[in-house]
């Protein structure tokens, strides 16, 4: 399809830093190629702002191919914009029409404080991972031969699907409760499905859930919004599996 050029109006959240108040600012941007990605459109706006000697908009991004999980943005009321199964970096301007007004806001969550403009701090996710998102095996390289422990293909595939989470935080951003259950559920599930993870399963789920609660995320009420907005299609099944693991661990743990 031939690229078109569209003119748009943007309403973008600007906030100097974590300690100041922010507000939506309005910008017009002309001649945006519909072949551009959403982030390239923001590049174009920033170029325009800098040339006008104004401060460009800060936003997180890195790989721009939908895998690093660094890009975010709440676009027209939806995490990563109107297209499902897509990160903002892979959202293209052909999803928008000439004359559109587009709202761009940062992820809103108490656990993801704003750093600047559209940039938020997602290190809460890292701390949850540090609380138990691993198998305690040291680097020796010869713990056991990789093929000494067959794993049913279905389990391995499910573990992979859970592990495909890119940690972008869209689940938290789109959940009306700001819950991180899909992120944590995916990690817990990956290990719960694999024999390597079984040994520490009990402590893992208890520790990760405790850390999740400490970070100030909300509670899961099973609205399913996270699953719909997840750019990697992580299934709600993972939350259920975590609930199971949590109940099991809670009932049997002596701690």
């Amino acid at each position: 399809m031939a690229a078109k050029s569209i003119n748009i109006t943007l309403k973008i959240w600007r906030q100097k830093n974590a300690n100041t108040k922010g507000a939506l600012e309005t910008y017009s941007l002309n001649e945006v190629s519909t072949d551009s990605s959403f982030l390239e459109m923001l590049d174009q706006l920033n170029e325009q702002l800098i040339n006008e000697r104004k401060e460009p908009i800060a936003f997180d991004h890195d790989c721009r191919e939908g895998i690093c999980g660094m890009c975010s943005l709440y676009i027209n009321g939806r995490a990563h914009g109107p297209e499902t199964g897509t990160t903002t970096c892979q959202l293209h301007m052909r999803m928008f029409s000439d004359g559109d007004t587009i709202y761009v806001e940062p992820w809103r969550s108490r656990a993801f404080p704003i750093v600047k403009d559209l940039v938020v701090d997602r290190s809460a996710f890292d701390r949850i991972q540090q609380a138990g998102g691993f198998v305690s095996v040291n680097t020796s390289g010869n713990t056991m031969d990789a093929n000494s422990l067959p794993i049913p293909k279905d389990d391995a595939d499910k573990a992979f699907e859970a592990a495909a989470c890119i940690g972008c935080g869209a689940c938290v951003a789109s959940c009306k409760n700001g819950s991180a259950m899909l992120f944590v559920g995916a990690k817990v599930s990956q290990y719960a499905l694999l024999p390597q993870g079984k040994v520490e399963a009990r402590d893992r789920v208890l520790n990760m859930v405790r850390q999740m609660d400490e970070e100030g995320f909300g509670n899961c009420t099973n609205t399913g919004a996270c699953e719909v907005e997840c750019p990697k299609g992580i299934s709600l099944e993972n939350i259920a599996r975590m609930n199971r693991e949590f109940l099991k661990a809670g009932l049997s743990s002596e701690k």
Binding site: K11, Y74, G77, Y103, E105, R108, R110, S179, G216, N219
Partner: peptide, 18 residues
């Protein structure tokens, strides 16, 4: 849950996902 999102979105479109 309300506390988990102290600042609401200016534009929200939750009917698309739940």
């Amino acid at each position: 849950n309300k506390k988990a999102r102290p600042i609401p979105y200016a534009r929200n479109n939750p009917s698309k996902n739940s």
